[in-house]
Design a protein around this nucleic acid. Structure first.
Length: 555
RNA sequence: GUACCCGUAGCUCAGCUGGAUAGAGCGUUGGCUUGCGGAGCCAAAGGUCGUAGGUUCGAAUCCUAUCGGGUACACCA
């Protein structure tokens, strides 16, 4: 608890013998540095008008506060507004971030692409947002494990295998070598499209695909790496994983600690379902189901009447496997929001036989990425769903001669555009807006950071300030800087990177306002101001780091 | 039919654990320009917070109903 909070608790106790949990807010600048609404909350209990309660509190606080609080005012319906003295405000702005999650082990599962399929915008979004959430947790001291769960068996794989066989003209392993490494991803994608199309159209193809599906499961259960078809499967599966690896490297995101191909989770999942058959899971129409209605969710099949595990069972398997591997205190899984009801069923089932493990589960969701400029859908981007295409289009839209810089700005543009929106709903993505150098965009902040660096290059800043006294303009900047730690704290507890983007953008605006009216280099107050600029630049940079957005010092 | 998510300025979004005059960006209109990086700053116009009730001293925020959009509901993943 901060000094101010303690003071309020004492005041309420002494004056009214009421114990309160004071909630301090950061009000608009005209109201001071911190505000409390305790008087409003206590008014009813005390049977007094709020302002009268506030008067009593103010008198007590004025008499008992130390010098760190310069001013207490009553405003509006009965708010208590506090202003710090400049030294305390600067100390608040300079305070080290408190690592509140030290000792926690968080398993983050996101991105989750299926092998044998192409990465689309949903993967791009999750990769970027999941990466940032991981950084936020790490910044607060948590150990973070990144997991990636994807389908390497199932109908989609069988369809792709069918397409592959068409392209090869049969199980001709040697022909695979004719596909060059940079074409592998596209080649597999073509095969999948062909297979999916054939599956819908032709009955003979559909039957063949069904057989291939069984065969693929067989490669795993029989540990078959020898038969020609199996070799093709394993080879193309490797291609998929190296394609994913390149994708993550290109985005410069943290690597995954472990991949969980679906095939590796069935055993653990089946074991759990079978162990709880009769109690949690019941047989119905030849299948094994979880009757969710009793628990406020719906019924789902965990093992099909053909004896095959469904995704539900594999999900139980991955939950348990990850727990065994990393011994996590909390697991956060991100999926599209069409899975939210589904996930509730899985968690509800888990709750029935492993309450402790179920309690560690958390599900966050995202909507679909929409393209356009608001007026109309861009004809060029109207139907884009491929991740690679989005990156390509953004790179083309960035105006920079230097290829390395172009890359950094492109990454900044895409990441920021995704991160600035609250998790959960659909994501609006406008290429023009994302690369724009003005407005709430990644490149704007990158520029702001570079501009601050260029000021700092002209003279050396003091490392700290002793008993500073600020002008109004300086104080506004310091005040905004002082909000940083609590914003990051909130972003961590909410798993909400967009709180960081909003703050950084506001900070840059406050700085620009300051800089417009306050000369730094050559001014009488150069030393002090340079220290503020230095603090501002460091804050921007560390904020961009949490978002994993490159912050070049020169643009 | 049942459940979940969403509905805030022309457009795209913040704000939602109840609090002060509902905020940004883009777009529109006007101003600042011999500039430490103007990729900026200042200002104006623009809102029945989907609608109707309710709870409360106080509701964009909580509850109920309703309309509109999306999604999920038995052997796909």
């Amino acid at each position: 608890m901060t000094y101010l909070e303690e003071l309020l608790v004492t005041a309420c106790d002494q004056l009214f013998s009421i114990s309160v949990q004071p909630q301090l807010s950061r009000p608009g600048e005209q109201f001071g540095d911190f505000a409390s609404n305790v008087a409003l909350q206590l008014a009813k209990e005390l049977g007094q008008p709020p302002r009268q309660v506030a008067e009593q509190l103010k008198d007590y606080l004025d008499a008992n506060k130390d010098s760190s609080i310069a001013k207490i005012e009553i405003a509006g319906p009965g708010f208590l507004n506090f202003s710090f003295n400049d030294v305390t405000l600067w100390q608040t702005a300079s305070a080290k971030f408190k690592k509140s999650m030290t000792g926690q082990k968080v398993l983050l599962e996101y991105s989750n692409p299926n092998a044998f399929k192409e990465l689309h915008t949903g993967h791009l979004y999750q990769t970027i947002v999941g990466d940032s959430i991981g950084r936020l947790l790490e910044a607060s001291g948590a150990e973070v494990y990144r997991a990636n769960f994807g389908g390497d068996v199932g109908l989609h794989v069988a369809r792709c295998m069918w397409g592959i066989l068409q392209k090869l003209g049969g199980p001709e392993l040697t022909k695979l070598t004719t596909v060059s490494p940079e074409d592998q991803a596209a080649w597999i994608s073509q095969a999948y499209v062909a297979g999916a199309k054939a599956d819908q159209e032709g009955s003979t193809a559909a039957a063949e695909i069904k057989q291939l599906n069984q065969a693929v499961y067989g490669f795993h259960t029989n540990d078959d790496h020898e038969s020609p078809l199996a070799q093709i499967y394993w080879q193309c599966r490797d291609w998929s994983y190296s394609y994913f690896k390149r994708f993550y490297e290109d985005l410069e995101v943290a690597p995954f600690d472990k991949f969980y191909p679906e095939s590796t989770t069935t055993e653990a999942g089946l074991a759990l379902v079978k162990a709880n058959l009769g109690s949690v899971f019941t047989e119905s129409q030849g299948a094994v189901v979880f009757k969710g209605e009793e628990y406020g969710v719906h019924t789902r099949v965990f093992i099909t009447s053909a004896g095959l595990p469904t995704y539900e069972t594999k999900d139980l398997g991955v939950i348990a496997s990850e727990n065994t591997d990393f011994d996590y205190t909390k697991r956060v899984v991100m999926t599209g929001n069409d899975q939210s009801e589904y996930m509730r069923v899985v968690f509800a089932a888990l709750m029935q036989f492993d309450e402790a493990l179920a309690a560690k589960q958390m599900h966050i969701t995202n909507g679909t990425v929409r393209f356009g400029d608001g007026q109309k859908m861009s004809s060029r981007l109207g139907n884009v769903t491929r991740a690679a295409e989005v990156i390509e289009v953004v790179q083309k839209a960035v105006e920079a001669d230097n290829p390395a810089l172009r890359r950094q700005i492109s990454l900044g543009a895409i990441k920021y555009a995704f991160l600035k929106q609250r998790l959960g709903g659909d994501i609006a993505f406008d290429v023009h807006e994302s690369v724009s150098l003005q407005g709430n965009s990644g490149p704007y902040l990158q520029y702001a950071q570079a501009r601050a660096q260029s000021i700092l290059k002209k003279a050396v800043a003091l490392s700290d300030l002793q008993n500073p006294e600020f002008t109004d303009g300086e104080r506004s900047l310091v005040r905004k800087l002082s909000e940083h730690n609590s914003v990051v704290e909130q972003a961590v507890s909410d798993l909400a990177p967009h709180l960081i983007t909003t703050y950084l953008y506001e900070l840059a605006q406050v700085f620009n306002r300051f800089y417009e009216n306050n000369r730094v280099i050559g001014d009488d107050r150069q030393d002090l101001r340079l220290t503020l600029v230095s603090k501002y630049a460091a804050t921007l940079k560390s904020g961009l780091e949490l978002l994993n957005i490159p912050a070049p010092d020169k643009i």
